[in-house]
Amino acid sequence: MSNGRNTTARHGRIDALDLARGIAILGTFATNVWIFTDPAGALGWLALDVERGAVETLLLTLSNGKFLALLSILFGVGLELQYRSAVRRGLRWPGRYLWRATLLLLEGALHYLLIFEFDVLTGYALVSVHVAFLVSRSDRVRRTWLAVAAAVHVTFVGLLTAASLSGAFSGAADGTASTRDAEYTAIAAYSSASWLDQVRTRIELAGFFRLEILLIVPLSTVLFLAGIEVLRAGAFEDSERGSRVRRRLLILGLGAGVPLNLVTAFAGPDWFFVDRYIVPPIVAFGLLAAVVEFAARTRGGVLRRGLIATGRAAMSCYVLQNLVAGALCYGWGLGLATLLADARPWWVLAAWAFVSALLMTLAALWLRAFSRGPLELLLHRLYTGGPKKVGEPV
């Protein structure tokens, strides 16, 4: 092993980071695909009284929350790399990064409005602003913010779980989601309505769908700051120090997190918030360590290249996978969510595999001619007024 070098660095990039980001993007879709393939769409997915079979529960456990948490950690890693790049160039920080965050916020708002109810880019943009100010502060300041954000998040999830166990949400669901208007929204707006009707639904129910941001902001703060910590600790280094950090993350994430996740997954809908917002982020650290170790020990391969290409065009692939899934599943497209409702959960796996293969193929082809994905290039030109340089960190 080389001493302190980033694992499989190439052209100024960290292949392990791109690989992890690609896995996170496709893993996030492994959760979102269940939303798209539900005949009642997003509101069907949110129904607390839905009974899922053992196979579907197990499949959901493999993806639910973990890869989104991994993506959040990697966003923090990327923010640290941008800070380092600014320091090397003698640029003021956060400086123009705030304009970059504004562009991300606008992109997320459009993604929500036009494509997907559970967009995370909006929340990421909001969190990135205050974390951008923290990245240059002392270890003590950053870690204090991390601890406070973690305490707020755990408290919030604890209160929601206590309310769920007490039956508070069942009454609320009966009073809102079971009304005639909500039934139309949950079924007609996804199985038969036009794309414009869906846009109107997202506008009308924006307050409801965007409630998750209240959980995303403190959790993403924790994970962004944790991403900065693991990068500075050497988690991506091809060194003994890096191996030591990754072993600890594996023990935490896979040794402790996975068994806990299995318990919460089968504990019932009352434990939904713990199962999605507490345990999966723990598992995500183990996934990160496993991916970096895999990247350090392997070379080449079609699958690896496809995942790295997806990671390099992460934002474009995130938006495209949701657009393609909508076209496949909703009434304004092929309407497969309704036509194949009796084939769940198996056709859901096929849909995920098809879209994932499509994304990896398109990303690899696009990156033969360009240094970044189409959305990345567009936002970069709006951000700097110039083209993206090959190898410049995200």
Results as ranks from 00 to 15, higher is better:
residue 17 L to H: 01
residue 18 D to C: 07
residue 20 A to P: 00
residue 25 I to E: 01
residue 26 L to G: 03
residue 29 F to I: 06
residue 30 A to L: 11
residue 30 A to D: 03
residue 37 T to S: 10
residue 42 A to I: 12
residue 43 L to A: 06
residue 43 L to I: 09
residue 43 L to V: 06
residue 47 A to V: 04
residue 47 A to G: 04
residue 48 L to Q: 05
residue 49 D to N: 13
residue 49 D to V: 05
residue 50 V to Y: 07
residue 52 R to W: 04
residue 61 T to K: 00
residue 68 L to K: 08
residue 68 L to V: 14
residue 71 L to P: 01
residue 73 I to M: 10
residue 75 F to R: 06
residue 75 F to K: 09
residue 80 E to D: 13
residue 84 R to D: 14
residue 88 R to L: 08
residue 94 P to L: 02
residue 95 G to C: 05
residue 105 L to E: 10
residue 107 E to S: 15
residue 107 E to R: 02
residue 107 E to M: 15
residue 108 G to C: 05
residue 112 Y to T: 01
residue 114 L to W: 14
residue 119 D to K: 02
residue 120 V to Y: 04
residue 122 T to N: 02
residue 123 G to R: 15
residue 130 H to G: 11
residue 135 V to A: 02
residue 136 S to Y: 07
residue 140 R to Q: 14
residue 141 V to S: 14
residue 147 A to R: 13
residue 149 A to P: 05
residue 159 L to E: 10
residue 159 L to G: 14
residue 160 L to M: 15
residue 161 T to R: 06
residue 169 F to Y: 15
residue 170 S to Y: 11
residue 173 A to C: 04
residue 176 T to Q: 07
residue 176 T to I: 14
residue 176 T to A: 13
residue 183 E to T: 13
residue 185 T to C: 00
residue 186 A to S: 15
residue 188 A to D: 14
residue 193 A to D: 14
residue 193 A to K: 09
residue 196 L to M: 15
residue 198 Q to M: 10
residue 201 T to S: 13
residue 202 R to S: 03
residue 204 E to S: 11
residue 205 L to A: 10
residue 210 R to P: 00
residue 211 L to V: 13
residue 214 L to E: 07
residue 215 L to W: 02
residue 223 L to V: 09
residue 225 L to H: 09
residue 235 A to P: 04
residue 239 S to H: 10
residue 241 R to W: 06
residue 243 S to V: 04
residue 256 A to P: 00
residue 259 P to D: 09
residue 263 V to K: 00
residue 264 T to E: 00
residue 266 F to Q: 06
residue 270 D to F: 00
residue 270 D to L: 01
residue 273 F to R: 00
residue 273 F to C: 00
residue 277 Y to D: 09
residue 277 Y to S: 01
residue 277 Y to C: 09
residue 278 I to F: 07
residue 287 L to K: 06
residue 289 A to D: 10
residue 300 G to R: 08
residue 302 V to L: 14
residue 302 V to S: 12
residue 303 L to T: 12
residue 303 L to N: 08
residue 310 T to P: 00
residue 313 A to P: 07
residue 314 A to T: 05
residue 315 M to H: 01
residue 315 M to K: 00
residue 320 L to F: 08
residue 320 L to Y: 08
residue 321 Q to T: 13
residue 321 Q to W: 12
residue 325 A to K: 02
residue 330 Y to R: 15
residue 330 Y to W: 13
residue 332 W to Q: 12
residue 333 G to C: 10
residue 334 L to A: 13
residue 334 L to C: 02
residue 336 L to R: 11
residue 342 D to G: 14
residue 344 R to V: 12
residue 347 W to L: 07
residue 347 W to Y: 15
residue 350 A to H: 04
residue 350 A to W: 03
residue 351 A to T: 15
residue 352 W to I: 02
residue 361 T to R: 08
residue 361 T to H: 09
residue 362 L to Q: 00
residue 362 L to M: 07
residue 366 W to Y: 14
residue 366 W to F: 09
residue 373 G to Q: 03
residue 374 P to L: 05
residue 376 E to V: 01
residue 380 H to D: 10
residue 382 L to Q: 01
residue 384 T to W: 01
